[in-house]
């Protein structure tokens, strides 16, 4: 591919992304305005008088026509203003920034567990294709893919927290440690390490380990399956046989050649799995009182905080578009076949 054609390809891609984003905005706006919950009532309370109610109603701009409201929304979003949360009175984006680190911390440990479990298992399954390790791994990973994670979370909490007392209960750390370490990265484990508060580190890991393991297990299913399929492709290819013929050991062939060749594909798969953890986070955060993005989204859905819900949905959309784009780019740059 010549540099110029690559540039035009890139420009075209940017154009389609812009259109996709606009569509996304229409979608989020429609969702926001369709929501039946009464945000005004949530603000003024059950016993407020009608004139207080109307005062807030006009303040929020609900008396204007819908297209006008959409244009106002579009303008606001383009200028980086995602509105204020009806619940907290704060800019929604600030609220989301405040809850995001909790989810990222959880998701990061989860993906480490998921990839750490999924990739070796996937390789093993491919190498031992159709023998008993392959079958065991298949059942194990399908279980992870099939469990209703909110249910597994509840059961695990009952066993490991209530009965055995091995891990912490809900929340990111024991409550009395909250606010003790200065927030630098907002990842509590890292912040506490920086502050050399080892009790806090331990408490944080204690609270992280259960939800992260469950999330990691559920995402390992996808990673295992994809790794296995990529590896099988490689193993069946000619050069592997050639390498074997040349006298390389089986282990060397698998790790030095086959595995090295699928690393780019694996990175994109892990990136996509990382994004998909957002979905599991919505459910697992509810079960573990985890003050992250998922809990923020669901609690605002229940209370009808439109601006917050719209921005959350928009953000998830943007994250996924970006991840898909990333995997496209990675393929294009590294994959010899598309070069």
């Amino acid at each position: 591919m010549s540099p110029t054609s690559r540039m035009t390809g890139f420009a075209r891609q940017l154009g389609t992304i812009a259109i996709t984003l606009l569509g996304l905005l229409v979608l989020t706006f429609a969702i926001g305005r369709l929501m039946p919950a009464d945000p005004v009532r949530a603000i003024v309370g059950e016993e407020a008088t009608q004139d207080t109610y109307m005062q807030v109603y006009t303040q929020l701009g609900f008396d204007r026509p819908l297209p006008v409201q959409f244009l106002m929304y579009l303008r606001d979003v383009l200028t980086g203003d995602f509105g204020t949360s009806i619940r907290t009175g704060q800019p929604v984006i600030n609220d989301i920034m405040a809850v995001m680190p909790a989810t990222l911390e959880l998701a990061t440990l989860a993906i480490l567990i998921g990839a750490g479990l999924g990739i070796p298992l996937g390789v093993l399954a491919a190498v031992k294709k159709d023998r008993w390790p392959d079958h065991v791994i298949r059942i194990f990973s399908l279980m992870g893919h099939s469990m209703p994670i909110f249910w597994t979370g509840m059961i695990a909490l009952l066993i490991f927290y209530a009965a055995l007392g091995w891990v912490g209960g809900g929340g990111r750390i024991s409550d009395y440690y909250i606010g003790l370490v200065p927030p630098v990265t907002n990842f509590i484990v890292i912040d506490a390490m920086l502050a050399r508060e080892w009790d806090v580190v331990r408490s944080a890991l204690n609270h992280l380990i259960l939800p992260a393991s469950l999330l990691g297990y559920s995402s390992s299913a996808y990673i295992t399956r994809m790794t296995r399929s990529f590896m099988l492709d490689q193993i069946n290819q000619e050069y592997i046989t050639t390498a074997r013929v040349k006298g390389l050991s089986r282990r060397q062939t698998i790790w030095r050649h086959a595995f090295l060749n699928i690393r780019v594909q694996l990175v994109t798969i892990v990136a996509l799995a990382y994004g998909a953890l957002l979905e599991g986070a919505v459910l697992i955060e509810t079960v573990f009182s985890w003050p992250g993005f998922g809990q923020y989204l669901t609690s605002n859905l229940m209370t009808g905080d439109m601006n917050a819900v719209m921005t959350c949905v928009l953000l998830v959309g943007v994250i996924f578009i970006a991840l898909n784009l990333l995997s496209d780019v990675l393929y294009r740059v590294f994959d010899p076949r598309t070069r």
Binding site: L109, L112, I113, G116, L117, L164, G165, W166, V167, G168, S174, D175, Y176, R202, L205, N206, L208, I209, L210, S213, G216
Partner: peptide
Amino acid sequence: AALGLSAPVVLAET
């Protein structure tokens, strides 16, 4: 933690 297990810890009071 990396093993997906956590050492039993006696949880302190508040």
